[in-house]
């Protein structure tokens, strides 16, 4: 008897001005055993798109204008869906996330979970204190607004089943996207599990422009309330 085909796993990497490190991020993902990679260049002003396109086997798509991380992730998920993905994993393009965690996420989806949330706060060793506080406040707000408690509502390292992809409907293009996914999990009664993930806080990722700041956090909170 033939064994069932392994699920088609696609990794979505949204990027914005990551020309310096895009090659190393992609090659690290590929060497961890996942070759289906979608890179979404969110209107970078550097050569990120050109560099990503030159990497063999990578599906590189580009936003003509910068639309925000949430918009880039959604474009990437749509690209993966068009390519026939059974499982979609999203991860940041600045090299913070360790691709070694992908296989655990895929296994948990294969075991029947709809969504797997990578959590930086399950083990926050090495995480800057202000980030821990910032994230905990974010979790509390998400809990109050959407009625679901998760340990890391702002994490971009997540995995989705085919069913979850078809049901999740978000409208935010910016950082509120990650919180909206939590709302959708509850609204659609999707099953989810959280796993601790390893995060590498490099000098590059900590100094990068466009990362979440307190000001952006406040704006995100206001947007979440209005929407």
């Amino acid at each position: 008897m033939n064994s069932p085909l392994p699920p088609s796993v696609w990794i979505v990497v949204p990027v914005f001005n990551e020309g310096d490190i895009i090659r190393s991020v992609i090659s690290e993902i590929a060497s961890s055993g996942f070759g289906n990679i979608v890179v979404v260049d969110d209107g970078s002003s550097d050569d990120t798109f050109v560099r990503a396109s030159e990497i063999g086997g990578v599906t590189a798509v580009r936003h003509l204008l910068n639309r925000g991380k949430g918009a880039a992730v959604r474009t990437g998920i749509e690209a993966a869906r068009l390519s026939g993905a059974d499982v979609v994993v999203t991860m940041d393009g600045d090299g913070q996330h360790d691709p070694a965690d992908i296989s655990t996420m895929v296994r948990l989806i294969a075991e029947g979970n709809d969504v797997v949330l990578g959590s930086r706060l399950k083990d926050h060793t090495g995480m800057p204190l202000y980030k821990v506080i910032h994230n905990r406040i974010g979790n509390l707000i998400v809990m109050l607004l959407y009625g679901l408690w998760v340990t890391d509502s702002q994490s971009g390292f997540r995995a989705y089943s085919k069913q979850a992809i078809s049901k999740i409907r978000t409208s935010s293009d910016r950082f509120a996207y990650d919180s909206e996914v939590i709302r959708e999990i509850r609204r659609n009664h999707l099953t989810f599990v959280e796993i601790p993930i390893k995060v590498r806080y490099t000098e590059y990722s900590m100094n990068k422009q466009g990362r979440m700041t307190i000001g952006k956090g406040i704006r995100t909170f206001i947007r979440m309330i209005i929407s």
Binding site: V61, R62, L65, R67, T75, A79, L82
Partner: peptide
């Protein structure tokens, strides 16, 4: 912008 970006894949 998304439609334009995904045009190639379709």
């Amino acid at each position: 912008i998304r439609k334009e970006a995904l045009e190639k894949l379709k």
